[in-house]
Design a protein around this nucleic acid. Structure first.
Length: 212
DNA sequence: TCGCGGATAGACT
DNA sequence: GTCTATCCGCGAG
């Protein structure tokens, strides 16, 4: 099966921005947990000091980054899991980290998975989002997106008022040049963006309302 | 509302 | 032993 060119036909930073406003879903069988992507980060290969693939580092732990665009790269750090999608061709270790979604369906289940946490605390960070999905293993690591219970709707996307680029979160400060690079993208004004200030939240959540 | 520190687990030196 | 692509609770203002 031919891979979707969405994850290969332009820069990883451009792909990260294009993922904003799209729907990420996770099929758990009896229902579908889903939400709109509102925060992403791009990691751009062997030169990127902040990337797991920096300097060609490759092992079982980060193999997903080296796979063809559209492959899932799921890994754990501390007690949490992260959801990445590889971009570019095989052996070009770039990828996009999905950091936050605005929940849409399966919210009750997500609250249960988050042990009662509610509202924006549900999914406003990469570890929180995966906990809300109930992910407790790397089971789907290295699976192509289309052969997994996960899905990203590449055919529709919400219209976004304004995208803002910011430095990535929590990356090593060893090389300030890469630590400061603005490869984190957010839907401006959305309450589910991690660490957003209350005064920056907009009534429309940063989306342009379209009439049907 | 903020800044700080502790918890915690896996990969790497 | 060291270092994270984190999260949460606590205390000060």
């Amino acid at each position: 099966m031919k891979a979707n060119p969405f994850f290969t036909n332009r820069s990883t930073a451009a792909i990260a921005q294009d993922l904003l406003g799209r729907r990420l879903s996770f099929d758990i069988g009896k229902e579908i947990l889903s939400g709109t992507i509102v925060e992403t980060e791009a990691y751009v290969g062997v030169k990127d000091r902040a990337a797991h693939s920096f300097n060609g580092r490759r092992s079982q732990a980060n193999e997903g980054l080296y796979r063809a665009g559209g492959t899932l790269y799921i890994y754990s750090q501390r007690q949490y899991f992260f959801f990445d999608v590889a971009t570019q061709q095989e052996n070009e270790p770039e990828g996009v980290l999905i950091r936050a979604i605005e929940p849409e369906t399966g919210i009750e289940t997500m609250i249960k998975n988050r042990h009662g946490k509610n509202g924006t605390l549900l999914t406003n960070g990469p570890g929180k989002m995966m906990q809300a999905f109930g992910i407790t293993s790397r089971k789907w690591d290295l699976h192509p997106l289309q052969d997994s219970p996960f899905d990203i709707d590449l055919n529709h996307k919400k219209k976004i008022e304004k995208i803002i680029a910011l430095p990535r979160v929590g990356v090593s400060q060893a090389d300030p040049k890469w630590a400061k690079k603005e490869l984190r993208f957010i839907v401006s004004g959305n309450p589910y963006v991690s660490d957003i200030k209350k005064k920056d939240i907009k009534e429309n959540h940063g989306f342009v309302l379209t009439k049907n």
